[in-house]
């Protein structure tokens, strides 16, 4: 029951949020929440470090943008089409790379994403250095007008909620159990008669498609798609979000994405110092808070539970949460 109550509170807060905060910032956070969830599915639950996830994010942004600009396809279908295109690209690249592991896999995916980046730079339909401008927000389902940021916020919220649910479902599915087994001990899974490469490929495709949906959303939020979305710093940023939030934790990507986007936003005025502070935060997390924001919080809760069990006194968990923050 308390979990349901918590969900209700989160839902209420999400619905009320655009009246208190700048809706574009909130929508950016949600795009990156979906992107970070997709990445955590790979790194946290499959054990694959993909160093080129931006190719799915940026690639789908162009596909969604192109469809909206050249056809009358409704916005939600265009975003979905971006996700599907990223999924197809993921299937292709996954098929070619799945035999590799560890650093080799990271380097090969980086190479592929750089290749895709330069294709986008040269291809005429992307607008090259200028990017793809003035992407319209076609009517939702072909009827509902969503041009205002406030209305569009709820569309993005709905898609995000759906994606987070899908991510939750995959992690807590029969397949998710096998996936975690592959992450823990791949040769053993193979000795049990399962095909770990195929299992990882499925995760890679789901992850790529989800990253694509995130990219498609971002293209419709900002109404433009640029090369930056497909560049390697975006791949790095999503790694940072996932690690900061807590690797292999369910809600970690949500917090990681929110923290990084808000920091970028608040520190934007300091120019290069935003990057410097990001680097410092990253170092602190890697050195002192290996489990990330959510992971440390969970560990702290377990510690409190153990202590109160030992002393028979209930500690106050609410007041201490700030300490676990990176």
């Amino acid at each position: 029951m308390p979990r349901l109550l918590l969900l209700a509170i989160i839902a209420a807060a999400a619905l009320a949020a655009p009246f208190y905060f700048y809706s574009v910032t909130l929508m950016t956070i949600m795009c990156f929440v979906v992107f970070a969830c997709s990445f955590n599915l790979l790194l946290g639950y499959t054990g694959l470090l993909c160093f080129g996830h931006a190719m799915f994010f940026g690639g789908a942004a162009y596909v969604t943008g192109y469809l909206l600009k050249t056809t009358s396809l409704s916005t939600e279908l265009a975003v979905l089409a971006g996700g599907a295109a990223a999924g197809v690209l993921g299937a292709l690249i996954g098929f070619l790379t799945m035999k590799r592991q560890g650093i080799q896999f990271a380097m090969i995916t980086l190479a592929f994403s750089q290749f895709i980046y330069f294709v986008f730079l040269q291809a005429p339909f992307t607008g090259g250095e200028d990017g793809m401008q003035a992407i319209p927000r076609n009517a939702l389902f072909g009827v509902v007008d969503i041009t205002s940021n406030l209305t569009f916020y709820y569309v993005v919220l709905a898609i995000t909620a759906l994606c987070v649910f899908v991510y939750y479902r995959v992690v807590h599915s029969p397949y998710g159990e096998v996936l975690k087994a592959v992450r823990d001990n791949q040769p053993r899974v193979e000795s049990l008669g399962l095909d770990p490469e195929k299992i990882k490929l499925v995760a890679f495709i789901i992850s790529a498609a989800m990253a694509g949906i995130a990219g498609g959303m971002k293209a419709t939020v900002y109404q433009f798609a640029t090369l930056t979305d497909a560049s390697w710093p975006i791949s790095g940023e999503v790694i940072l979000m996932t690690l900061l939030g807590g690797l292999g934790t369910l809600t970690g990507p949500v917090f990681g994405a929110a923290i990084i986007i808000l920091l970028n936003d608040y520190l934007a005025g300091f120019g290069e110092w935003a990057l410097v502070s990001q680097g410092v935060i990253f170092l602190v997390v890697i050195v002192f808070f290996r489990r990330g924001f959510v992971g440390e919080l969970a560990a702290f809760k377990r510690y409190l539970a153990r202590r109160s069990a030992r002393h028979g006194t209930a500690a106050a968990p609410g007041a201490k949460t700030a300490e676990a923050r990176g």
Binding site: R169, V170, H172, S173, P174, Y175, E177, L194, K198
Partner: peptide
């Protein structure tokens, strides 16, 4: 259960609950 799933045929069912 992971081993049992090997012949149970649910190893790729990512859309179902546990």
């Amino acid at each position: 259960r992971v081993a049992l799933q090997s012949s149970f045929g649910t190893a790729y069912h990512f859309w179902r609950s546990l």
